[in-house]
């Protein structure tokens, strides 16, 4: 039986939420799912991982190496793990860290690599991913004994599939090089949550007119358990930091619900959010292009509609 490996990405001693969707995709592929963990807290995570189908959790270690400081050693350790445990497909989340670790692992394995995939077929060894800024979907065929694949967050639902899990500590030898070292991690300035993992997003465009006005989106977001985003125009005007930008040169997101407030609906913005399940557009201009490519439209002033929506959500609890 083939074995699929999943890089168990963690931040702040928690498994990244979208990892569970990746595990479910791997489990649905038919093979056994082996998790690879590099932060040393296997006992803490084992129940969560067993619940969604991880049969073996490999806790990778390397002598004298702090993986959090060495991205290259992390990638190489993951590669060694994949080889030692006979993995035929190595998956992870296409997050900034996930992409970096998977790419370094793929280089060490001399394996084919596809990042930001929306689908993967373990029988045909194909993946589907965006080309031309979301305007086309490409099917790529991967050859060789092993391929590496990063999955766009929220592409797969996490499904419960309880199994018995075995923890296997595994020490690998990797070069302890100082060619690339992470010297510090600076926390975000903003208290806003990460966009890419969000299941609901409410975004503001240039008509927001100031960073202060984003408060009305924050208030609505609290009721929706949503994360606030922004268009490039709003970011370039200085109303929001770049970390909040959705689109071609910002974050690629795939939430269940995307509410665009005062967005025109540019091709570049849609490149970053068109795989959302439901898109709602709020704009005063009835001819705005966004109304031609959304699911629901509200022709109205966001400064009236958004607070009214917040109030309605409050009322309904």
């Amino acid at each position: 039986m083939s074995k699929t490996g999943v890089f168990i990405e963690t931040t702040d001693q928690e498994i990244k939420q979208s990892v569970f969707g990746v595990i479910s995709a791997a489990a649905a592929g038919g093979g056994e799912v082996t998790g690879f963990l590099l932060d040393g807290r296997a006992d803490k995570y084992k129940d969560q991982l067993a619940a969604c189908g991880v049969t073996e959790l490999v806790a990778l270690e390397a002598k004298d190496i702090d993986f959090s400081k060495s991205p290259q050693a992390t990638g190489e350790a993951l590669a060694k793990g994949a080889t030692d445990f006979g993995i035929s497909a190595l998956l992870g989340v296409s997050s900034p860290t996930g992409n970096d670790v998977l790419a370094r692992a793929a280089m060490a394995l001399k394996a084919p690599l596809a990042l930001d995939c929306m689908d993967v077929d373990f029988t045909a060894n194909t993946v589907k991913k965006s080309h031309f800024s979301g305007k086309a979907v490409a099917t790529l065929e991967m050859t060789g004994a092993l391929f590496v694949c990063g999955i766009r967050p929220n592409s797969f639902e996490a499904v419960e599939s309880p199994v018995t899990i075995k923890i296997t500590p595994h020490t690998v030898e990797v070069e302890n090089s100082d060619a690339i070292i992470v010297t510090e991690v600076q926390a975000a300035d903003s208290s806003r949550k990460d966009l890419t993992e969000a299941t609901v997003i409410i975004s503001g465009g240039r008509p927001m007119a100031s960073s202060d006005n984003f408060k009305i989106l924050d208030e609505c977001a609290r009721k929706l358990d949503a994360v606030v985003g922004a268009s490039r125009a709003a970011v370039d005007a200085g109303y929001a930091p770049h970390s909040m930008q959705v689109g071609q040169t910002g974050k690629i997101v795939s939430p269940k619900l995307y509410i665009g407030c005062g967005l025109s609906g540019s091709v570049q913005h849609f490149a970053g959010m068109k795989t959302s399940k439901v898109i709602v557009a709020i704009n005063t201009d009835k001819d705005a292009p966004i109304f031609t490519k959304s699911d629901y439209g509200i022709i109205g002033d966001l400064f009236e509609v958004v607070p009214a929506l917040t109030k309605e959500l409050e009322k309904q609890g």
């Binding site: 305007k135 086309a136 490409a138 065929e141 050859t143 898109i279 966004i290 109304f291 959304s294």
Partner: peptide, 19 residues
């Protein structure tokens, strides 16, 4: 190692249902 097998256009949504 990685071959482009096919390209398909992404279906855009049609006009929004205006509330």
């Amino acid at each position: 190692q990685c071959r482009l097998k096919s390209l398909e256009p992404v279906q855009e949504r049609s006009n929004a249902k205006i509330l």
